[in-house]
């Protein structure tokens, strides 16, 4: 049996919704057969569901605008951005249109739109095809940002996003497409919080008090896991890793509750250091649970630089396993 990767899980979720709900349409550049999308996620679906997948011109703004209109009038369109970086081209359609209509019209309408966006680096695609641009959308009220990890059920998550009456930007870590999806692990006890957008909670303290809370999302989770497994084996530091799938709006209760127990917080994301998701999480924890902290929180992030193409340069800009381990050392030594 082929292993279930995050990419296959997303494809399975799309297939299920296409089969179950005749109002679901998939639109994107080169998504139809034989190409099946730049990352081959939709391969086979246009043959299986004739007329339900539409190849679009290279018009990201137009595609998001048109699908917003479709969503306002009874359909459930799903857009595939070929690369998440191109979401910048559709910023106006997401920020000034899709995210605004329901609230602006005093709740009279819904915009059940999903925009799937492959994000993240480590594949050598360079400055305009490797970013984590979800950060540009996190502060838009009315826009839900969801990011699966290998510890989530990505098929269920994309299904929930399609069923959602609100616009959802679905962040797919490119590196995760080939990563195996598994909700059990030899190193961690894994639990999930409330659906439809659960946080994955990974704990290796075996019933004891974990020493540190690590919060992350999307493609940083496997890196965090690897780092924390090594830290546990070599330094006996046990952790609780929290990976929310709904990264905005963010429910911080789970994070606060964990920090109240551990007293230590690391927040990891792949995007650049400044003005990021990690900064927001740290700020919220300090504001509400600052008196429970025994050490200053530490962020693990990319550098404030564009992403280079050459591998050693890209490795230098992005946070890796060693960066996470360095953060653990920093937070434990205080």
């Amino acid at each position: 049996m082929e292993k279930l990767t995050v990419g296959r899980a997303i494809a399975a979720g799309l297939r299920k919704k296409l089969a179950d709900d005749p109002t679901v349409y998939l639109l994107g550049e080169d998504i139809c057969d034989p190409y099946g999308g730049a990352f081959r996620i939709t391969r086979g679906l246009s043959s299986e569901f004739p007329g339900r997948l539409i190849n679009v011109p290279i018009s990201e703004a137009g595609t998001v605008a048109v699908t917003t209109g479709m969503a306002l009038r009874g359909l459930r369109p799903v857009v595939e951005m070929m690369f998440g970086d191109f979401i910048a081209l559709a910023a106006d359609q997401l920020i000034n249109h899709a995210a605004k209509f329901s609230w602006m019209y005093n709740g009279a309408v819904s915009v059940p739109l999903v925009v799937r966006a492959p994000m993240g680096g480590r594949r050598g695609y360079g400055p305009t095809h490797s970013q984590s641009l979800e950060r540009m959308l996190l502060s838009t009220p009315g826009l839900r940002i969801v990011a699966p990890t290998p510890r989530h059920d990505a098929a269920a998550l994309i299904g929930a996003a399609i069923d959602d009456p609100n616009p959802v930007v679905f962040i797919e870590g490119k590196l995760l497409y080939a990563a195996e999806q598994a909700t059990v692990s030899e190193h961690y006890d894994i639990a999930h919080t409330h659906p439809p957008y659960p946080a994955a909670v990974l704990n290796n303290a075996a019933g004891e008090q974990p020493n540190v809370t690590v919060v992350t999302y999307g493609p940083m989770l496997p890196i965090v896991e690897e780092a924390m497994t090594a830290t546990f084996n070599e330094d006996e530091v046990a952790c609780e890793i929290l990976a929310p799938s709904e990264i905005a709006p963010l429910d911080t209760a789970l994070i606060g509750e964990s920090v109240a127990r551990t007293g230590r917080l690391i927040v990891a994301e792949e995007g650049p250091r400044s003005w990021g998701w990690a900064a927001e999480v740290v700020a919220r924890v300090v504001e509400r649970w600052g008196d429970r902290l025994v050490a200053r929180p530490v962020r693990v992030t990319g550098r404030d630089l564009p992403l280079p193409t050459a591998r050693p340069l890209e490795d230098h800009v992005l946070p890796g396993v060693e960066t996470v381990r360095g953060a653990v050392e920093k937070v434990m030594l205080q």
Partner: peptide, 24 residues
């Protein structure tokens, strides 16, 4: 009936609405 304050934007949203009406 829908209006918005971004020039040209609703012409594009309207295009999608038209496709939805056709599809349904």
């Amino acid at each position: 009936f829908y209006t918005n304050g971004i020039t040209g934007g609703m012409g594009a949203v309207g295009t999608g609405m038209a496709l939805a009406e056709k599809q349904q």
